[in-house]
Nucleic acid binder design. Structure first.
Lengths: 240, 240
DNA sequence: TGTTTAAGCTCGATG
DNA sequence: CATCGAGGTTAAACA
């Protein structure tokens, strides 16, 4: 592997900009360490003071300005942006990334210290335990929802959204099942209410399936006449 | 600035691990380019094949495994984790990050190509145009909500959440105002409904303020007897 | 510590 | 193309 393309501190701004642009155009991931200001102008307006920080430019056009405290970036631009790298009259290297809706992110480097370029792999992620995994488990094992429950439709489309699992209880009554892989919150009761209200509400039951539920959410659920069923993702994993 | 601490490709795994650990312990941000596998074992199980990729370790303990397509990381660990860097019997450098709830992220490097270390600044972000900015604008200019509207409480706490703006209309009728800075969606009607339902519902009006609204959301809003008011964030910015 | 909500949420699926 | 919903959402504000 050759590192000739990477920026060193002694490079002129023009050389640095050329190296970065070449790497980006050739499809490499580019990570830059330098001193810069950051400006975002779109649906909000955001400004980061001149400081030393690192930013990443993806081949897809995504730009990420890293923070030093959190997982979340301090500023960013999503994929499919138009990214330009140039040098202005002050000898600053300027990276401008614009979306089709003209949201713009501009990173202005007064000093580029170092860069990393590398050809990215095609990513192969394997995940087990998603909400969809739980759906399929519950459809295969409906007694976990309620004894005698019969699933009829998975991801049933209605005018106000999509019901996770729709079916009938042991008495044949229509039932809306909303599934969460994490602790159920107030907004999850809202969602269940909306679906029951749309397909009924008369004669339609609502069941919320989640590992646990917050106290306020249980109160609201009870008040609205729904049922809570605890199913933990670990059970799903163990049974499969 | 000295770069002696950074990892070069010729470093032994043990030297590399020591350099990375020293940098991390001294409070630097550490970015590593190398060939690695990634394992997350927590609420779900996630695995990334052995590939060349970059990861970042924050002083706060946050670990981010970058993807090459999107802004979102392929895997991560939030702040306040316990991070270890060590070398195993196969001469692999292993970074293990565990949360208090024992979720673990493990990155195993078979090859470390390069690293970047830098002392992070205290970040100073300035943002204009947040939902809170819109709240304050509306409280100062309540006629944008409705002629004669009188705000009484900002962020009013109730048992099922927090009302953005609570007040009375020109006839003295109690009114719940829910504010969104982006296009209003179905779940936003849910939220408004929950608040009106809690403080009334009898004799309480609901107003949703947002730049625009989706068709399905407007239908549901109309059906539930609420009012939609269009206020664009740009108006808020211009007036201030 | 637990809960609720905003976020420039991002991103994928679906109509 | 919009829109809905998941996400290991994350992170902040508040009780």
């Amino acid at each position: 592997m050759s590192y000739k393309g990477q920026v060193a501190e002694e490079d002129s701004p023009r050389d640095a900009a050329n190296k970065l642009l070449n790497a980006h155009l050739s499809g490499d991931v580019v990570i830059i360490l330098g001193v810069c200001t950051v400006n975002y102008d779109g649906e909000v307006w955001k400004y980061l003071d001149e400081e030393r920080r690192s930013i990443m430019i993806n081949p897809s056009g995504a730009v990420v300005v890293h923070g030093s405290k959190s997982v979340q970036p301090k500023a960013w631009q999503p994929s499919d942006t138009d990214t330009e790298i140039e040098v202005d009259d002050d000898e600053d290297v300027i990276i401008t990334s614009k979306t089709s809706s003209d949201d713009s992110l501009q990173v202005r480097f007064t000093d580029i210290i170092q860069s990393i370029h590398y050809t990215p792999p095609k990513e192969n992620v394997e995940v087990v335990g998603s909400e969809d995994d739980i759906h399929h488990f519950l459809i295969d094992n409906p007694d976990y929802i309620e004894e005698g429950f019969v699933p009829e439709t998975h991801e049933k489309e209605i005018s106000t959204g999509r019901i996770d699992i729709f079916g009938r209880d042991k008495d044949g009554q229509k039932t809306v099942v909303e599934v969460k892989r994490r602790k159920a919150q107030l907004k999850d009761i809202d969602q269940l209410y909306r679906y029951v209200d749309t397909v009924g509400p008369a004669g339609v039951r609502g069941i919320l399936v989640a590992p646990t539920i917050t106290e306020a959410a249980r109160n609201l659920l009870t008040q609205r006449g729904y049922k809570f069923v605890s199913v933990k993702p670990t059970v799903v994993l163990d049974e499969n």
